[in-house]
């Protein structure tokens, strides 16, 4: 349970600010990052849905290879990849072990490997795309595809307000700690200490709720004076805002390249459905 303490130490304002916001807006230097957000989203939609209904292992493997290439291209942080792999392996691993217990055999491993392959393709697709889109471009892309403007606004507002919220959370947490009393003994497996911290973290939300309520009131009032509701009812504004989105030749190249690859893949898949196993 020492991990809890370390985790709480990690909730240092500066740390999170730097880690999250620094990287969030830093993605447009990669090849995928330079593509139009709509291209990426459409591309993603395909790879998020189709694999579910493909049971041909050759096709899935081909898709997986493509995903690995795009993942490398988008320079995803190794940490995220590690988390992904770990999650997939442990999930499937436990499933397999339990199925052995229920009378399954080694042969149940194969369908599960297929499932893993599917899940990997889908997860890698989402990681590639969403780590290549900075929040602004993502929200613009989504709103051009018809997601409500309120979501797009919330997304960028989230990035605006997060540091403020963290700061305030941190201060209130400090207030609790400066006036509180940590358990003198850590207890069994640091249980007491963990309970103490978790209790504070929950309690912090009481003042935080009240303070945030005050804040939201001004924010919404200010939004009114800044013409936000006017824009929501005005399609012209949306058009103006999204006018910078442009399908460049690289977008078409990327899309047609992917199409060609998939077509070839399906053709190959039907010829040799059991290339892998």
């Amino acid at each position: 349970m020492d991990a809890v303490k370390r985790a709480l130490d990690r909730i240092s304002v500066e740390q999170i600010k730097l880690e999250l916001l620094g990287t969030a807006y830093n993605s447009s230097s990669t090849f995928l990052g330079k593509l139009d957000p709509r291209t990426l989203l459409v591309w993603y939609l395909f790879f998020a849905i189709v694999p579910w209904f493909v049971y041909n292992r050759t096709i899935l493997l081909g898709m997986f290879i493509l995903m690995v290439i795009t993942t490398v291209l988008s320079r995803v942080s190794p940490y995220i990849l590690f988390i992904l792999c770990f999650g997939l392996i442990s999930q499937i691993g436990w499933l397999f072990l339990l199925s052995l217990f229920f009378g399954g055999g080694i042969e149940s491993l194969l369908p599960m490997l297929t499932l893993t392959l599917k899940l990997s393709v889908i997860s890698l697709a989402s990681i590639t795309v969403f780590s290549s889109l900075d929040p602004e471009r993502l929200s613009d892309g989504l709103s051009s595809l018809g997601v409500p403007d309120m979501f797009a606004f919330s997304l960028s507002y989230g990035y605006r307000i997060l540091p403020t919220l963290l700061e305030e959370f941190h201060q209130i947490l400090l207030s609790f700690r400066l006036r509180g009393q940590r358990p003198l003994k850590h207890g069994w497996l640091y249980c007491r200490t963990a309970v103490y911290y978790l209790r504070i973290v929950v309690l912090v939300f009481y003042p935080l709720m009240l303070n945030t309520a005050k804040r939201s009131r001004t924010t919404i009032e200010a939004l009114e004076t800044r013409g936000f509701s006017y824009a929501l009812n005005n399609p012209k504004v949306k058009k103006l805002k999204l006018s910078y989105l442009l399908m460049k030749w690289s977008d078409w190249l990327f899309l047609s390249g992917s199409c060609l690859y998939i077509t070839l893949l399906f053709w190959l898949g039907y010829l040799h459905p059991n290339l892998l196993y």
Partner: peptide, 15 residues
Amino acid sequence: VGVEELEAVKGLAES
């Protein structure tokens, strides 16, 4: 949805 023939794999559904 993800596994082609769930019933074919023994014990998977239960687990």
